[in-house]
């Protein structure tokens, strides 16, 4: 996983609540056995017209947001399906940080597994950042994960909360499986205490 430490980039405003993972990437694009290459399908139903051409009104199709690495969105972002293709598609497009008043739980967890930082900030603060983002490519936001601040174009610093363990993993690009395997002896000990009635799935 790529580390996340510091990011200065254009932010794209997506002022919609309840952006579900079907919207982030519709199910018909999940028929892949790879993690890569999903960026072109990101927000497909909003981003492309029925004939496959780009919908010029959609925010990420506007020249000033094509290089956006930060997304500022509405409440309950990432609700619905657990598909990790949603953060994969965001990442493949180039998005490394999503800022919203709230996130759905599974999507929120999936972001951290992929080097994307989801930042929760109060709705009125998100509105300010949405206004900053609306100014386009010249109004860049800076994210400093170590200090836990978003820096607005005018230099104002906004503090955000992040889970300490997840922050540590992001800052160091740590793979969860490697961390968990440090507890292998505890897992062995737990399994040794399995109740006798617990069936195994054998003989399918």
């Amino acid at each position: 996983m790529e580390k996340f430490t510091h990011l200065t980039a254009p932010a794209a405003p997506l002022n919609l609540a309840n952006v579900d993972t079907d919207k982030i990437i519709p199910a018909r694009f999940l028929k892949t056995i790879k993690r890569s290459g999903l960026g072109k399908s990101l927000f497909a139903d909003m981003r492309y017209n029925a004939d496959g051409s780009e919908n010029s009104a959609f925010v990420l199709n506007q020249p000033k947001y094509r290089q956006a690495q930060i997304l500022v969105a509405g409440d309950n972002f990432g609700c619905g399906s657990s598909r990790e293709h949603a953060p994969w598609a965001l990442l493949d497009f180039g998005i490394r940080c999503v800022i919203a008043p709230s996130f759905a739980d599974i999507f929120h967890g999936n972001c951290f597994k992929n080097g994307i930082l989801p930042i929760v900030l109060p709705a009125d603060v998100c509105e300010q950042l949405m206004d900053d983002a609306a100014q386009g490519a010249n109004a860049r936001l800076t994210i400093d994960l170590e200090k836990q601040v978003v820096v607005r174009p005018d230099g104002e610093e906004i503090h955000f909360e992040v889970d300490a363990f997840r922050k540590h993993c992001l800052l160091n690009g740590l793979d969860d499986i490697g961390l968990t395997l440090e507890h292998a002896a505890a897992i062995d000990a737990y399994e040794a205490k399995t109740p006798s009635w617990k069936p195994a799935i054998n003989g399918v």
């Binding site: 993690r35 657990s82 598909r83 990790e84 953060p87 599974i106 967890g109 999936n110 597994k113 992929n114 969860d176 499986i177 968990t180 395997l181 292998a184 897992i187």
Partner: peptide, 12 residues
């Protein structure tokens, strides 16, 4: 769970 966690459960 997401796919990273699927891998995590398969492995651990």
């Amino acid at each position: 769970i997401g796919t990273s966690e699927v891998e995590h459960v398969l492995a651990t």
